[in-house]
Computed example of a mutant assay.
Amino acid sequence: MTGLRIDRVRVLPLTLPIANALRYTQGRVGAFQRIVVELSTTDGLIGYGECRGDLLRYTLLSDLAESLVGTDPYQLETLRWRMAPQGLVELFSGTVAVQAYSAIEMACLDLIGKSTGRPVTDLFGGRVREEIEIAGYLYYFGGTPDGEAADRLLASARDVVNRYGFTTLKYKCGVLEPEAEIRTLARLREEFPDCRLRLDPNGAWGVGTSVRVLAAAREIGIEYAEDPAANLAKIARIRELTPGVALASNQAVASPETMALDQAFGAIDVPLIDLNWYGGFRAALSAARMAELLGRDVGVHSSMESAISQSAQLQMAACLANLPYASDSHYLYLQDDVLAGDPLPITGGRMQVPTGPGLGVEVDTGQLERLHNRWQETGFLSWDEPGGRPVLLPRW
């Protein structure tokens, strides 16, 4: 029986600055906002976990924090059920409770790894790779006129390929008129003929627009299209009308339950696994193995992580035998981080899986406090366009 006991819990929202506001189909992201859960034990260990930062997750984690004092971090299943309202059937379906729990589980596993001197990968059967290929994430930038948006995106692509050595590029689209984005995709293919290209409009297109854009994308050559439309029924129809284009998802399929549901639709080729969305390490690895059983490979999704969650995603990816795709990552956009020392490096389009105990990263408490103070100045930020209303899908 473990002697570990949690004796202090802190819930710290952070605002992490980025170089440029990033546009996506429903608005723009001016900074990355995360919530860090810090668990301390009676023998002086500190474990860190993290999830997306917003008021709902913050309220839930803050309300729960005191009840974690005195608990054993090994008892993850008890903690999991504590997060859900009694009788809730969809306990793990991408809900706020699921994502908040994932931060607690991450911090507990960080503690367990540190107490045993083993990386998190060793708690789940060990790693099958030591480095993870990373996709260069391309956005339109906020404040750029639409007529100049593609030129700036292409300039950004050249910069990150030269700087980091990416051989896969992910084009975040669904922002401009579809015909303009087809032209941008064609320019990316012309400039980067040897790169794998993927696109993600975040469900912005209806069936007709999706068929038109994906027919052009098929000729241009893409690895896959992620969530062209917003639900499984639409994506299944798109698949029927646009053969020869692989389809991926982290919206229509974002949990083990929706992955199972897709067996009826047959819409998705590549489930994109995310520690937060799927409910932590255990649920994410279980979902990836479920996909393997169903004959599917998986990809790894990104939720705008700090080094804490980026390390966790790398550790998860290292355990996935059925991962042939470069992993999504927003880490290249961070201008500040929680680490003691240099940022996690991206070299030759790859990131090394940390080998230290737990998550394998050293959090600088001064940096943590400074980024928390920055959140106290900004509060939780809206992702809507400035002065605009929330965008309804599909946009086209």
Rank of each mutant, 00 (worst) to 15 (best):
W81P: 05
E105W: 01
A186D: 11
R28H: 02
Q26K: 10
G3P: 09
L154P: 06
T41C: 09
R8I: 04
E240V: 11
T184C: 13
A307G: 03
A321L: 10
P119M: 01
A248M: 13
E385F: 13
L197R: 13
G113E: 09
P13I: 03
G70D: 07
Q313A: 14
N202S: 10
W81A: 12
I235V: 09
M259P: 10
P390F: 05
N20T: 02
L153P: 11
L153Y: 10
R282Y: 07
S311Q: 08
V175I: 12
E240C: 06
G136F: 00
E219Y: 01
D54Q: 01
A254E: 12
L247I: 15
R370L: 05
D110R: 07
G70C: 06
V213I: 08
L332P: 03
L45A: 05
E38M: 06
Q352S: 12
T78W: 12
I268F: 10
G206A: 13
L381F: 00
E257N: 13
D122K: 07
E77Y: 10
K172F: 01
W396E: 15
E133A: 11
L241P: 08
A97Q: 15
L368G: 05
L138G: 04
E90A: 05
F281K: 14
M351V: 01
L241V: 09
S309W: 00
R187C: 04
A317Q: 03
S286R: 15
Y140S: 07
C173R: 09
T168A: 14
L339N: 02
P357S: 00
P357E: 02
T242N: 12
G348C: 04
Q75T: 03
F141T: 00
T41L: 12
A180T: 15
V298M: 06
D297R: 14
D110M: 12
Q367E: 12
R10N: 09
D384L: 02
L91P: 04
Q99M: 13
T42C: 12
V98P: 11
W81H: 15
Q335S: 09
N20K: 11
L323Q: 10
L138I: 00
L199M: 14
Q310A: 05
R57P: 06
R395F: 04
T78H: 12
